[in-house]
Design a protein around this nucleic acid. Structure first.
Length: 927
DNA sequence: ATGGGTCATCGACCTTTGCTTCGG
DNA sequence: ACCGAAGCTTTGGTCGATGACCCA
């Protein structure tokens, strides 16, 4: 990573200094300062942009050391009272900063986030936000690698975000220089899976909420009252068919209109009520109302939703379709959500609210930026503003819309970015005009405002516009950027369909009945992966993805571990089953739910053959031979189900895994005699090289190969039984106990420690039991656990073991006690020695005192020695309690004398305290 | 735009049966 | 002198999965 200072040195030494200064100046925009003041919500915008920045950081992390010619910087909404905190070096660089976007992103971020404030603070002149045009002048800069503290970098992000400074980079479209790609680490994968699961649970909960709202009697009654009389009787037929539902669907479709996301965070139930009242609502609400109506008409109906969930895999390189990516971009999972249509009375939400309800993020952003524009005290000229806004909104919108509908454009195709931006700007301008007209909010002056209010209009119109401009998103899923995709519909059980009845797809939003086969295509068109389709009823849920997804192999890897998912759904499925099967029961105890299970299972097993070879790599049903692993084989080789590019397609159930002979032994199987290996592999790499030498000497090539066998070539392991108390051992004199199956008949594995000496003492034949290997010190070592003996000796050994253990424990206890005593003795001895030394040398500086010590020593040594003897004789465990007296300090030229009459004994705790007249005391416990 | 082929990379899995020194 | 415990050098090769890129 290139450090800032290094870059700076290079900058200053380059002949392009002038031009660099020019760019540095361009970065500062004094006119923006005022905008930041007093408008805290601006931080939100900045946060979003920082999120994008971080996204790019991740993106370009792998392309270090690369230089590009077309780097450019785009700054958006640079403003605020900028604090310093820049290094001295940075100050020197003021006005000469060059920010490049293709160099290492961390460096880039650090540079920008540190530099911009200092530049602005130093009073750089007002400049407009624009792209750097003279990138070629920067080519002379050599970047060096060096460490940059990432923590610092992170904190800078935060700080500057708070200050309202946002810098956005646009990664230059130079795919040729982005060869190196950072891959997700295991940790990131784990996090992504975690987010995915949590998101799934939340969406399940949301679905249940909607489902229960559909059961509201008041809403149902109101819907019935709206329904024309001739439609009321449509569903009375004993055998309901999908066709019979069509007029109902058409009426509903024409009666209710769509609008964008909710403007307020109402509980869903009341939102549904107001949708009913105003006859316009989000697709979710409209679909829910249709469910309510069908239920009111006594039709068995489910609310069905595509769970548009965060990706299971970390997205490092990609854009973030479906609200996935931002979860790890540092600015929150919903921070860069779709351009969405806000409600007419859209009011700014608090950031917290926004985070809690992703739908509102954009409206939040825009409304705040609107407010910002309104409150701007030092207004710029209209031109300046529009330029700035255009720039800001463009970059903002670009990301958003890229995320929304043109994901593919963002990655490899950077070439047309500019034209795309232009188009987008135009689209956004149009949108804004319409918004302004419709909402009559005079304060809305920010033309670049990407999310705002759209008057209610019909769904077809919405769809058309969404698909053409990608700017009017109806994001109905939380944090979703999918527009126009079918996300919600109903499933009505039609007993008149098929023999046993059928769940019929009814999408009132798009006025489609029985169009289940179209859902996949419609979702694909809007880049919405059809990973989870869940039907909700009776407060339960059931995964019905199979009904709508024909290319399961495409979504299988994007779905969470099925065991976890099934476990989550199991109780919900029960509830759903009860709710939808309570009316009708079928012959032979089959419920509607079990019949549907069979139907879905049948679909699973009859998936059409993919047309591309890659799909067979991990297809759950089919395989072509080229994708077999080296230890796999087709057995039996057939039937051929079809062909793909000339390759025969086999059922995956024919794929068998092969093992070496030794490996089968571990599973208690042995290869039958005279079996020919199902497959012979060449030994690879180093092993092979060694073998080649041998081959040259005519050793034969069988040593250079590995013979693999299939399970069908094996039989249960036959081991020689134990005879006369002798354990049959292998060539190493041991028994490999991979499992119980590997034990010779008549033997038993005793997994206890210290059995070897016992068996030896009892003269019982045994074998060490090797249970596996472990790697230590660079080599794999066998791990032994217990011994294998003949069954008849088991009891004798265990009995002896128990006795031995008792003996051993007693011995161990004695040893421990002796050791403890020894250590106490050592401790006390050292204490006394220390005290003597203290008295003799530390305090006795003068010769006079030395004499005193000598004289008193004779006396005290007797006492001290006596007490010591007493202690050892009595096996005392003593504690030196430094009494409150400051004896060590005060007792200069003094050796403690513990007189018998000064001793006290605490009978209760068996502690004895000896005291010296100087105040020093020793407390000890008598054992 | 899509699919096939190739390559790079990461990460999981497989591998698989001492030697030397020092203290008791 | 012998025995046993402890510490040492804490793999590394291979392959599948995945994704990027190029080309048809």
């Amino acid at each position: 990573m290139r450090t800032r200072n290094q870059a700076k040195r290079q900058n200053q030494s380059t002949a392009n200094e002038d031009s660099l200064k020019h760019y540095g100046g361009m970065e500062s925009r004094s006119g923006c300062k005022d905008e930041a003041s007093g408008n805290e919500t601006l931080a939100n915008i900045s946060q979003g942009a920082v999120g994008k920045l971080l996204k790019r950081v991740n993106k370009s992390r792998g392309s270090r050391g690369l230089k590009t010619d077309d780097s450019y910087l785009r700054k958006q909404d640079t403003m605020g009272e900028l604090e310093n905190g820049s290094s001295e070096a940075e100050k020197q660089l003021t006005g000469t900063t060059v920010v490049r976007t293709t160099f290492d992103a961390k460096c880039c971020t650090t540079d920008v986030l540190q530099n911009v404030p200092s530049e602005v603070e130093n009073g750089s002149t007002d400049v407009q936000c624009q792209s750097i045009e003279r990138e070629d002048e920067l080519d002379g800069i050599d970047w060096e690698d060096g460490p940059v503290d990432t923590l610092k970098y992170k904190s800078n992000v935060k700080e500057d975000t708070i200050n309202g400074v946002t810098v956005e980079f646009d990664a230059p479209p130079d795919p040729s220089k982005q060869k190196t790609v950072r891959r997700a680490t295991a940790e990131e994968k784990e996090l992504a899976e975690f987010v995915h699961k949590v998101n799934l649970l939340c969406l399940l909960a949301r679905g249940r909420l909607v489902d229960s709202a559909c059961n509201d009697p008041l809403i149902q009654a109101s819907l019935l009252s709206l329904l024309p009389a001739h439609l009321l009787k449509l569903t009375d037929a004993p055998k309901l068919t999908a066709k019979a539902l069509a007029p109902l669907v058409n009426w509903f479709h024409s009666h209710f209109r769509l609008r964008g996301a909710n403007d307020t965070e109402k509980p869903f139930h009341s939102a549904l009520a107001s949708t009913l009242e105003s006859q316009e609502g989000t697709p979710e609400e409209v679909a829910a109302l249709s469910v309510a109506l069908f239920r009111a008409l006594n039709l068995t109906t489910r609310f069905v939703s595509i769970l548009d969930v965060a990706s299971l895999k970390p997205e490092i390189e990609k854009s973030y379709p479906s609200g996935k990516g931002p979860s790890r971009a540092g600015s929150g999972i919903f921070s860069s959500s779709t351009l969405m249509v806000a409600g007419p009375k859209c009011s700014p939400l608090s950031p917290a609210k926004s985070m809690a309800y992703g739908k509102h993020i954009v409206s939040d952003k825009t409304s705040t930026s609107t407010g910002q524009a309104t409150n701007d005290k030092s207004r710029e000229t209209i031109t300046d503003k529009s330029n700035k806004r255009m720039s800001a909104s463009t970059s903002d919108a670009q990301d958003d819309s890229n995320d929304a509908c043109i994901i593919k454009k963002e990655r490899p195709k950077r070439k047309g970015d500019l034209e795309f931006e232009m188009q987008l700007e135009m689209a956004l301008s149009t949108t804004a005009v319409e918004i302004a007209r419709n909402t009559m909010i005079s304060d809305v002056k920010d033309v670049g405002s990407t999310s705002s209010n759209v008057s209610p209009f019909k769904k077809k119109k919405i769809k058309a516009e969404e698909c053409s401009t990608s700017s009017h998103g109806i994001s109905t899923a939380v944090g979703s950027r999918k527009v126009g995709a079918p996300l919600y519909w109903a499933e009505v059980y039609c007993s008149g369909e098929n023999l046993t009845g059928k769940w019929v797809h009814v999408d009132v939003v798009n006025a489609i009945t029985d169009g289940e086969q179209n859902v996949e295509a419609a979702a694909a068109a809007c880049k919405l992966p059809l990973r989870y389709v869940v039907a909700f009823a009776g407060n339960g849920a059931k995964d019905v993805t199979r009904r709508y997804c024909t290319k399961w192999y495409k979504i299988a890897s994007e779905r969470v571990n099925s065991i976890w998912w099934d476990a989550v759904l199991a109780p919900l499925k029960e509830l759903e089953s009860v709710a939808t099967s309570d009316v009708v029961h079928f012959a032979q105890g089959e419920t509607r739910s079990s019949l549907e299970d069979m139907e879905l299972e049948t679909r699973e097993l009859t998936e059409p053959l993919p047309t591309n070879q890659q799909a067979y790599r991990s297809h759950h049903l089919y395989i072509i031979e080229r994708w077999l692993n080296k230890n796999q084989i087709l057995y039996p080789k057939g039937p051929v189900l079809g062909f793909c590019s000339g390759h025969p397609v086999y059922p995956r159930s024919c794929v068998r895994t092969l093992q070496r002979k030794e490996r089968w032994l571990r599973e208690g199987l042995q290869v039958k005699a005279n079996e020919i290996p199902a497959k012979v592999l060449k030994r690879s790499g180093k092993q092979n090289k060694g073998q080649d030498v041998e081959d040259d000497y005519g050793e034969g090539d069988c040593e250079g190969t590995v013979a693999l066998y299939g399970q069908w070539q094996t039989e249960p392991l036959f081991l020689p039984p134990a005879v006369n108390g002798i354990v049959p051992k292998n060539e190493r004199g041991q028994v490999d106990v991979w499992s119980e199956k590997c034990l010779p008949p008549g033997t038993v594995h005793l997994r206890l420690p210290r059995l070897v000496p016992i068996a030896k003492r009892l003269q019982i034949d045994f074998s060490p039991a090797m249970v596996g290997f472990e790697f230590r010190n660079g080599r794999s070592l066998p791990v032994y656990e217990g011994i294998v003996v003949c069954t008849e000796f088991k009891d004798a050994i265990l009995e002896a073991y128990a006795e031995e253990e008792v003996r051993r424990e007693a011995k161990e206890r004695r040893r421990t006690e002796a050791e403890a005593l020894s250590r106490w003795y050592q401790l006390l001895s050292s204490l006394i020695t220390r005290q003597r030394l203290h008295n003799r040398y530390v305090d006795g500086a003068s010769s006079q005192s030395a004499v005193n010590i000598a004289t008193s020593n004779e006396k005290s040594s007797l006492l001290a020695g006596g007490s010591e003897n007493t202690r050892s004789a009595h096996q005392e465990k003593s504690e030196i309690a430094k009494s409150s007296s400051p004896s060590f300090v005060l007792a200069e030229n003094h050796e403690h004398v513990f007189l018998v009459e000064d001793q006290t004994v605490d009978e209760e705790s068996s502690t004895r305290t000896k005291r010296c007249r100087c105040g020093f005391s020793v407390q000890y416990e008598e054992l």
